[in-house]
């Protein structure tokens, strides 16, 4: 309202008034000031407009009052920098080519269905593993292990091997035997001979594995890595503290 009136007053007028300069912040000319009340022009309370404008535009809701006080105390603030958060649109989700970890969990793409929890299905996997470990270690069973092969054994893959729990803090785990189907960071998932999928934590358990008619003891506490990370990690020899 006020600004419009000001504009009108600033229009280039007749030759008589041409000499008077009307700036944007000048007081209104007297002719207008006379009919102030009729025209409904009133000097607005200081900063009312600015404040209401700021209330509308300042994005951070938490501290609006403080923000406004800051702005009104004439500190320089760059308004452009405030960027709205990017919300993933449907098209951008479609363009993404790999599943996110969350989606993977929701879809359960790694969980074995109950119909496939059968010992007989995984027997061939065990034979495959036997061949693999023989090729991998390349040892003669009569001679036993040396230090290098033991190190190698730590980096080997255990999917498909028959594993037995020999010691554990939880006594109900002791004695369970089965084929390792999945290995995660903290857990071995094994399938026992009576077709049950059992999840056995690595912490505080000692496993026994048969490698080429030799028995190997694995300390679960030392194997607590993701299966894929184990081949990268360098192992240090640790004194094993028994359970």
């Amino acid at each position: 309202m006020t600004s419009v009136n000001k504009e009108a007053s600033m229009l280039p007028s007749t030759s008589k008034e041409a000499a008077v300069y009307y700036g944007a912040y000048n007081d209104l000319p007297e002719e207008v000031n006379k009919y102030k009340e009729e025209l409904g022009i009133e000097k607005p309370a200081q900063n009312v407009f600015v404040e209401s404008f700021l209330r509308r535009t300042v994005t951070s809701k938490r501290r609006v009052d403080q923000e406004i006080r800051n702005i009104l105390s004439a500190k320089a603030i760059v308004m452009d920098v405030v960027k709205p958060k990017k919300v993933p649109t449907e098209t951008s989700m479609k363009q993404r080519k790999s599943l996110t970890a969350k989606e993977r969990r929701q879809l359960k793409i790694y969980d074995i269905k109950p119909d496939h929890q059968k010992y007989t299905i995984y027997e061939p996997l065990h034979y495959l593993w036997k061949d693999y470990i023989r090729d991998y270690l390349q040892i003669l069973p009569e001679k036993g292990f040396n230090k290098q092969t033991l190190e190698k054994l730590l980096k080997a893959d255990y999917h498909g091997c028959i594993i037995k729990v020999t010691k554990s803090k939880c006594p109900s785990y002791v004695g369970t035997t089965g084929i390792v189907v999945q290995e995660t960071k903290n857990v071995f998932k094994i399938i026992t001979k009576d077709d049950i999928l059992k999840t056995i934590p690595k912490v505080n358990t000692v496993f026994c594995v048969e490698v080429q008619s030799l028995l190997v003891t694995l300390y679960g506490n030392h194997l607590r890595r993701r299966a894929s990370e184990r081949s990268v990690k360098k192992f240090k020899s640790k004194p094993t503290i028994d359970l």
Binding site: K108, I109, Y110, D111, I112, K113, D115, H116, I121, Y122, P124, L125, L128, W129, Y132, Y136, D157, H159, G160, V181, Q182
Partner: peptide, 19 residues
């Protein structure tokens, strides 16, 4: 080995894709 294991599990039971 892992690649072969994936093959063998899938061949054993074509529905067992998860493993």
């Amino acid at each position: 080995f892992l690649y072969q294991a994936a093959h063998s599990t899938l061949v054993q039971n074509p529905n067992n894709i998860e493993l």
